[in-house]
Design a protein around this nucleic acid. Structure first.
Lengths: 355, 355
DNA sequence: ATGAAAGCGCTAACAT
DNA sequence: ATGTTAGCGCTTTCAT
């Protein structure tokens, strides 16, 4: 079977082929393509035509080898399930586009080995920068690798990694939510959130504790349920809470996925908010507002966070700001407490159990 | 300021440095690292140690140049707002990880120029494969470029691009929903969906029309509202529909984002489902089931679709299956109709307007 | 304004 | 089992 002569498929056309076709040297072609200052305008024209005609496609690897830098930016996240992750991806994608870079998305599932693998690949590709939500058990070698790449931490902050960060003020957020409930007269408030091995988990729990202390309210350890950030854990934890001898009259959720689970559990138990129990959700997916009677929530300024993170990374990637001059920036963004319909003053009779 | 001698930062250590350090040839190092069959085990050991000690990091571009292939797979989507996009990204990410490839995520906003830019960059990087939801106005040069890369189309299908595809059977889905409503006695059913310039938009509308024809029900053109796949369009369209002299008694939504908008509009108008009006949503985000009374919906087997798409791409990327032997595969996946609480038999009095 | 030539870091013959 | 050598396609001096 003879090869058809379509210009596009199997294009191994190089800069030399173009040069030969035009009877000029390949370095002239290179210059023309790069819009080099001292290049004949007419030559440029001819080169562009030849390029089109022959279907020449530059070889990124060759260029990357010469210039010792790649064209990508890495975004390393534990998962994509929450809205925040999606907003991050969108924002970084938009900025990459503007900068002519490619976004490499990596999902770790919080597995330190997978995390290492991604960072390594990015480093090998001479990635321009990395935005990462560090896994709790990040490997030393990963940290080391990261030190040689402009890095910005997002959401979680690793103790040993000396890179700027952007995170939510989870303590303030949960504190506000708890305070709100306390002021509403609730005394048995439960907190369902993430394990303290994640910095975010620890902070949010701290906010819960702090609010109780500050209001002189007694803290019942059995009302705190910590686990993985998954809907199912939230569901199970809330179910369990509802079956206690003295169930809580209010719920503060410490993660978006868990809020989903809480809703499932409540629905299954046939309980209503805020009639039977008050609820403060975490995060603010658009449907929270739609839910009747509207879910009271710890709202995250997602776009603001994403922009801040991307901005921090871009700054590091710009030649000027690098080196010794970079003062470490750690941005903490406050959540906005959104009072809607799922919280109300404590009822006389406690929440009834079952449907 | 003298440079500290940490092995990691500013690592320009090459394979030659490692060789020199060990007093051997650089090709031996290369072989050791590549686990070449005829290599002394002890040498391998020493090489690995030296690599660790010197902080050598392979240069992906150099390797890529030699082997004329990159390490990435592109996922090109119009947006990330819907759950399907997230599931796709997750699935592709998981498969890339297994294959040791990197996922490059590109968001086009359905802009043909941006789309071209992304495809071009991927082609230049010698990407291993691409999964794409083609924009309605895809440029010819984009199509041409795509022909030289293993490509799989997802969701939408471009007429001129000769690549396998996976898509939802939108016609079947909307047909089923409409039929359901028709059988419930509804005669004034509105359809709010995407413009017909997208293949998906055209198909879904076709399902709506087909159901009416098949059931001998009259089709009122004023009950069809087509526009961009955005929540706001859905909201506006439904509001408008509700203010008609003779408003519809049921709504079939042709896009997930629009369903969100419809819910907003209904809430704003103070109407209840299914009491005042019946509603069939599109897609099936997890909160549909939670919504009381549960949103009746055209459910998409998202994981199945994502797996099928990825599988199709992987097959093309494997040496064996390429070339003339590839019979074009177009997979059409049926939606699952989920009857929940927002649809009911038509009421005697039509939906009242306003709150 | 253009050509000639060197070399980026790696792999893969080809020797030995 | 290891060393030598030749490029991969490009950018970039250095000449001219």
């Amino acid at each position: 079977m003879r090869k058809t002569q379509l210009p596009s498929p199997a294009s191994n056309v190089t800069i030399k082929d173009v040069a030969e076709h035009l009877g000029i040297s390949h370095s002239t072609v290179s210059r023309a393509l790069a819009d080099h200052p001292y290049t004949n305008a007419q030559t440029k024209q001819r080169v562009r035509q030849a390029v089109d005609k022959l279907g020449y496609v530059p070889h990124a690897a060759a260029r990357g080898l010469r210039q010792d830098k790649g064209t990508m930016v890495g975004l390393i996240l534990p998962e994509l399930q929450n809205e925040m992750a999606v907003v991050m991806a969108q924002t970084v994608a938009a900025n990459c586009l503007k900068a002519g870079l490619q976004l490499v998305l990596a999902v770790t599932g919080d597995d330190p080995n997978i995390e290492y693998q991604h960072v390594k690949a990015l480093r090998e590709a001479r990635a321009r920068g990395i935005i990462i939500t560090a896994s709790p058990g990040m490997l030393d070698k990963t940290v080391e690798l990261l030190r040689s790449i402009p890095t910005t931490q997002f959401s979680r902050r690793h103790a040993l990694l000396n890179a700027p960060s952007v995170s939510i003020d989870g303590e303030q957020g949960v504190f506000g939510a708890t305070q709100h409930l306390l002021q509403l007269g609730h005394t048995r408030i439960a907190y369902v959130g993430m394990d303290v091995d994640k910095s975010t988990g620890a902070e949010r729990l701290a906010g819960f504790v702090k609010a109780h202390k500050q209001f002189g309210s007694r803290l019942d350890p059995t009302l705190q349920r910590l686990g993985p950030a998954m809907a199912d854990f939230g569901r199970a934890a809330v179910s369990d809470l509802l079956h206690m001898g003295k169930p809580p009259s209010a719920l503060v959720m410490g993660a978006g996925s868990m809020t989903m689970g809480a809703l499932m559990s409540l629905r299954q138990a046939g309980l209503e908010t805020p009639g039977d129990i008050s609820l403060v959700g975490f995060g603010d997916p658009s449907w929270y507002a739609l839910w009747s009677p509207g879910i009271t929530a710890i709202g995250l300024p997602m776009f603001e966070m994403a922009e801040a993170t991307t901005g921090l990374l871009m700054r590091q990637m710009t030649p000027g700001a690098q080196g010794e001059s970079k003062s470490m920036t750690h941005i903490k963004i406050e959540s906005r407490f959104l009072v809607r319909g799922t919280t109300a003053p404590v009822q006389k009779r406690s929440a009834r159990r079952r449907a």
